[in-house]
Design a protein around this nucleic acid. Structure first.
Length: 918
DNA sequence: TCAAACCCGTC
DNA sequence: TTGACGGGTTTGAC
């Protein structure tokens, strides 16, 4: 009965057990995965989740997991230091590999080991054998040595950043990433070295150089033979390390001919021992996984046992589970002339994925192509081809559908708005969800999310994508979809699939509230803020530009006169020549490429030397920076006379917003000259004034509340100037006798603390010797011990959990807390201090924005939110509404939860932002 | 053309 | 050797 179907070749899944378990261990916090008996289970959980995902997605016909027997192998025989840098096994990891073994046994999955060899060699042997039979092979391994196995038949699944994130390494992927074919990867690795295996490479040679050499000389052998032809420092380094490179190459070669005493044919899964699974998962205290393990019991089983009857050898995706049946119903409709769109929309039940192609810019969006997907069907339309009736139906659907699932809902909103459509508030946004789950990640492009959370390759040719089961348009459709239409359809479809996966993760993280009550509602608020924009007074900008540009010219010519030649004053490199070679000024602090020419250093140099050039240079810097800003603001004014910035809701790891194109969150405020730019931001036509409302010392208030430090709380509640009061408490002088200098020191210490400032940093900041700064810190902590304990606790907790949390459960993962690299580790520690404080402030003002926006609209006012600058809101006030707006803003910005220190909001009103500020 | 380095504006 | 951003210019490699 059992044979290989030519359309669905056998697939072998082989997993490097130890390395994948170890990856899972570091990807998930050990502390949240602990049984009542104290056994840690994070590696088991991560491993089993990954295994299930692979079984469900790939449906392999053969499965095996290979384990190392011990640290000793033929490689340590040759080179005792091999993998010698690996430290002691973390105590939390102990016992978890055994547990994984038991799970595998219960699931009927073969475990393989071979004394004297590594799991990698077992993988290599099996992969080679299976590929020779024409099977597809998936190798899950966290060891890059496995890349040498990659071929058209063999794909390596290599762990990426997050838990459960596996990257499909194909020959193309290796070529793209390293610039050479997989078979040559070990040659590159031999040159570069592998820290985790304790195999040093050639110093100064990274992947780029290595790939270049290999391409130039045609492989490692030739390179080593002709090493004397390689010039430069790196050439010498290569010649000095020829033996090491040869040794690396010997050690990273995987054996493909081990005698494992088992045939790949025999790697069918055995039956799942349900009883054993139940017992084991009781011990592990896993609940959700149990069901998935049991329902995956038939994947990869011997055909005869699979469905309880003998007729299933045509197997493959059609095999009788719910998913496959649903897929047969899938349909793709490309809207053409006369297509009855309402027939399609009327049948939508449940969530509807929505994807738009076209510009997503505020104020100039355009939805060129639109795709809608429900659980079983996808509809695609070129919007410019829609007939009026069709357009009306789509518009009505978008405006009324309560179950929209989107990616970047704000951009989608702008795109639809460009065509005059309105969009119902989305029920879910997969980009926002992915951000909340891992806010420190870089990008959340659709393809990235599909790969990360659905485990599918972004490549349209990937056969595992359900959409390709669609097989094109339904028979009665005249047009086949274009590739752009297919891509849009896939994206809309993926929105729905992703929303289920991500909603579960949010729930697990206790971030569902943040999503549903904060980020999603805020998205709509931000869309309207961007769409509205802020009015500019072009006259003010013109005047400023004139003044500034003559200021720039004057400063430049004075500067040139002082040194007798013209240089590019914006070039740090040329400035260094002038300062240190020509003028022979004392050196400033070192940078990577020389000596710094930043304003602080120049200022200090000027005080010491009175060199006139420095003064002109500083003036020039200052003027040109402002000029630049004025010009970029002028260029950003839309035809409506307003600037429409973009607020990004998914870039800042702490939860803050970011503003760009142009950035309106860094308009000068500190110097009088710079502040003049704020005169140009005004109330627009039909409005009376701008209102600015900002939180006073919100971060210190959060610190007081969270640390429960009695002294700090008392300082706040005294109602006096905070820093003065704190200074009097630290220095033991009456409040009225606190000197300005004492106040400055305490203020700097306070704010420095939330950033992880060292004594050195504090000394620099205040211009005092380090011991004095250290003493200041000491005295501060003596008086505010609760703050010290709280901050220390933050880092300890972050190290334990792997992440920090804000007052509203916003997480930030900090993998670098366990970095071997001191600099990285210390940076992560400082971030751990800062994230809960900065992030809680971000939570609070986001909630305030949602409340203020809702209250303004409910009150039927025309006044509207325009900008957010981290702790400040700008509202455009309609005539006669100042009183109401002031009240609404004050109430909306009041703390959403009780705090031991109340939040204080300062409000100002004026014709321009400058006048509204206080 | 692109990335890295430097510099600097905000909170 | 203080957190979080966006963005300008120069420079050098490609």
């Amino acid at each position: 009965m059992e044979h290989t179907d030519t359309d669905h070749p056998d697939t072998l899944l082989i997993i490097d057990g130890h390395s994948m378990a170890f990856r899972a261990f570091y990807a998930l916090p050990a502390d949240t995965f602990t049984t009542t008996t104290g056994q840690h289970t994070n590696a088991v959980y991560g491993f089993v989740t990954m295994l299930l995902k692979l079984l469900e997605m790939e449906r392999p016909t053969r499965v095996a997991v290979a384990f190392d027997v011990s640290r000793h192998s033929f490689r340590t025989e040759e080179y005792p230091e091999y993998k010698g840098t690996r430290g002691e096994t973390p105590p939390e990891f102990i016992g978890q590999v055994e547990l994984i073994g038991e799970v595998l046994d219960a699931m009927g999955i073969r475990r393989l080991t071979r004394d004297g060899y590594e799991a990698d060699d077992i993988l290599a042997t099996l992969a080679t054998e299976a590929a020779a039979r024409g099977w597809d092979v998936l190798v899950a391994s966290g060891d890059r040595d496995s890349f040498q196995l990659i071929s058209d038949r063999v794909t390596v699944l290599y762990p990426g950043q997050g838990p459960g994130d596996l990257r499909e390494m194909t020959p193309e992927a290796v070529q793209e990433k390293y610039g050479l074919p997989p078979a040559q990867y070990p040659e590159l690795a031999a040159l570069v070295g592998e820290t985790s295996d304790n195999l040093p490479g050639v110093p100064g040679v990274g992947p780029k150089t290595a790939a270049q050499w290999l391409a130039k000389f045609g492989g490692l052998e030739n390179l080593l033979a002709r090493a004397d032809e390689v010039g430069g420092k790196r050439g010498q380094a290569l010649r000095d390390n020829l033996e090491e490179v040869r040794r690396n190459r010997r050690l990273n070669h995987l054996l493909t001919d081990l005698d494992l005493g088992v045939d790949v044919e025999d790697l069918r899964r055995g039956p799942t021992d349900r009883r054993a699974v139940e017992d084991l998962f009781d011990v592990l205290e896993f609940t959700g996984l149990r069901r998935r393990v049991l329902s995956a019991a038939d994947i990869g089983l011997v055909a005869e046992e699979a469905a309880g009857n003998g007729s299933s050898d045509a197997a493959g995706p059609q095999e009788g589970d719910g998913d496959a049946e649903a897929r047969e119903d899938l349909s793709l409709t490309v809207v053409g002339p006369g297509t009855d769109v309402s027939e399609w929309t009327a049948r939508v039940v449940g969530p509807a994925g929505l994807w738009i192609d076209g510009s997503r810019r505020p104020g100039s969006g355009d939805a060129e192509r639109l795709a809608l997907a429900d659980g079983t069907r996808v509809l695609v339309a070129e919007t410019s081809d829609l007939e009026p009736g069709q357009e009306a139906v789509v518009g009505e659907f978008l405006a009324d559908c309560p179950g929209l699932v989107v990616h970047d809902g704000k951009g989608t909103w702008h795109a639809l708005r460009g065509r005059g459509w309105t969009m119902h508030a989305p029920a879910f946004d997969v980009e926002l969800a992915a951000y909340l789950i891992r806010p420190e990640q870089r990008g959340y492009a659709m393809e990235t999310l599909v790969q990360r959370y659905l485990g599918r390759a972004p490549d349209p040719a990937a056969a595992s994508d359900a959409l390709f089961e669609l097989g094109g348009p339904a028979p009665d459709e005249p047009e086949a979809p274009t590739s752009a239409q297919t891509a849009a359809a896939r994206a809309a479809w993926a929105c729905v699939e992703l929303s289920t996966a991500l909603a579960a993760l949010l729930e697990e993280h206790e971030e569902s509230h943040l999503m549903g009550e904060v980020e999603l509602p805020l998205q709509g608020v931000l869309a309207r803020m961007e769409d509205t924009g802020i009015a500019m007074d072009p006259g003010v900008l013109d005047t400023l530009r004139g003044e500034l540009s003559s200021g720039v010219e004057r400063a430049a010519s004075e500067a040139y006169k002082a040194i007798g030649r013209q240089v590019n004053l914006s070039s740090p490199k040329q400035l260094q020549e002038v300062l240190f070679d020509q003028l022979k000024l004392p050196y400033t602090k070192k940078t990577k490429t020389g000596y710094t020419t930043n304003a602080e250093a120049l200022q200090e140099l000027w005080v010491r030397t009175q060199e006139p050039f420095l003064e002109h240079l500083l003036t020039h810097r200052d003027r040109i920076k402002l000029l630049q800003m004025v010009e970029s603001l002028q260029a950003a004014i839309s035809p409506d006379g307003r600037i429409h910035t973009t607020f990004s809701q998914v870039v800042a790891a702490t939860g803050r917003l970011a503003s760009s194109d142009p950035n309106l969150q860094n308009i000068p405020a500190r110097t009088a000259d710079g502040r003049r730019i704020r005169h140009a931001f005004v109330a627009g036509r039909g409005f009376e004034s701008l209102l600015s409302a900002d939180y006073s010392q919100i971060e210190m208030r959060i610190m007081a509340h969270l640390s429960r430090d009695a002294g700090l709380i008392e300082a706040f509640n005294s109602g006096e100037d905070l820093h003065r009061t704190m200074a009097s408490m630290v220095f033991g002088t009456p409040v009225e006798e606190v000197s300005p200098d004492q106040r400055t020191r305490i203020k700097a210490t306070s704010y420095g603390l939330a950033y992880g400032l060292s004594s050195y940093g504090l000394s620099q900041q205040l211009g005092i010797p380090v011991p004095e700064a250290a003493e200041l810190r000491e005295r501060y902590f003596e008086r505010f011990g609760g703050v010290r304990d709280y901050l220390a606790g933050l880092v300890a907790q972050a190290r334990r959990d792997g992440y920090t949390q804000t007052m509203f459960h916003r997480r930030r993962y900090l993998p670098d807390l366990s970095s071997e690299n001191r600099q990285r580790r210390e940076m992560a520690e400082r971030a751990a201090l800062n994230a809960p404080i900065q992030g809680s402030a971000a939570d609070i003002i986001k909630i305030a924005m949602v409340r203020v926006d809702a209250a303004l609209r409910e009150a039927g006012l025309s006044s509207r939110l325009l900008l957010q600058i981290h702790d400040e809101l700008i509202v455009e006030v309609a005539p006669g509404e100042v009183g109401d707006v002031t009240r609404i803003v004050s109430e909306g910005m009041a703390s959403p939860v009780h705090m031991d220190v109340p939040l204080e909001v300062a409000i100002g009103v004026g014709r321009s932002w400058m006048e509204a500020a206080h």
